[in-house]
Amino acid sequence: MVERDLEAVVLPELAMFAVAPRRGEALRQRSQRALPTPLPECGRTLFTDGLRTVCVRPDQWLVLGEGTAEWLGALLAEAFGDAANMVDVSGAYVGMRVRGAGSRAALGKFLPLDLHPRAMQAGHAAATLAAHLPVLLWQADDMPTYELLCTRSYAASFRRTMELIGVF
């Protein structure tokens, strides 16, 4: 039987920046003071007051928030000044939130990742190729809730895949 003890919703459009330190800058330390949500270590994500920071590769962070690219760009410029190389990737991804006890089993048909609580907990993030789709994801809470992002041009295939694995 398809597990139905889960719910899935499409995430709203997100402002998003890819942030990397300029040569020699200690961006993480700087973010502790300057951002409502500091930059996490690699493989982790943090979230406070509508601002999410994610790290899935060394020395690069993604900062996401519901709002305009201008708003987020200004916020980050103020926080980091010249210490960061930033690229605006707002709107480049579409997102989906999957939550509920059945989400692990359902997403196991899609993600080649260990979602078991011993391996992945709230605050963990990963980037992977799932069913040929580039996917960025993190576990938001212990319910568990997962948030998955996929590049926009694959949005239709991403949604179709979610239907095929019984998430939608």
Binding site: A18, A20, R22, R23, Q60, N85, M86, V87, D88, V89, S90, G91, A92, Y93, T151, R152, S153
Partner: peptide
């Protein structure tokens, strides 16, 4: 080299 590059093909 101090360079950071990101695909903006979907942006």
């Amino acid at each position: 080299l101090d360079v950071h590059f990101v695909s903006i093909s979907d942006r």
